[in-house]
Amino acid sequence: MLPKLFFGYYAVVIIVLSLLVVTRKNPVHSVMWMLLLFFHIAGLYLFLNAEFIAAIQIIVYAGAILVLFLFVVLLLNLREELLIERFIGTWPTALVISVSLLILVIRAIQDMALAPPGNHSVDAIQAETHTVALGKILYTDYLFPFEIASVVLLIAIIGALVLAKRKMRSPQ
């Protein structure tokens, strides 16, 4: 009963907060609701015994990405009243795409079957702590996908550098 209550709370609050994020006129308020949203997502991870992921969620998303977001919002809008339009012009397209995705997800859920439990049961993870368990799996069984993800991120960094350099050179 209690776990269901917990999950219900997180599910409802996450949906409400997501709606608040996209409907605020003031981008700084949107960012604040998003901060609360990230904390709830971290709470959901914690509730699933994924303590490492929960901490990383806060450090990376709330600590780094959202601060960057806030920084850009503050730099771009120096007007006294920070108000922007709630919806951009192409919202009907976005609506069609998201509704079709929703239908796809619902259809997929209907065919869902529970997989047989693997080696990493709740007790096993608790015994060696979540961080250790995750590290072992990530650097042994899934080393190749992990390295591919790292290379993708590296490409993104190099891409950003190239774009910034080109902009610096162009005025001359």
């Binding site: 303590e51 929960a54 450090i59 600590g63």
Partner: peptide, 16 residues
């Protein structure tokens, strides 16, 4: 178990 990460998370919250 993640005490150190918790401290880093809280310090990034303080910046807000």
């Amino acid at each position: 178990n993640i005490g150190l990460l918790f401290l880093l998370a809280m310090s990034s919250l303080g910046a807000y």
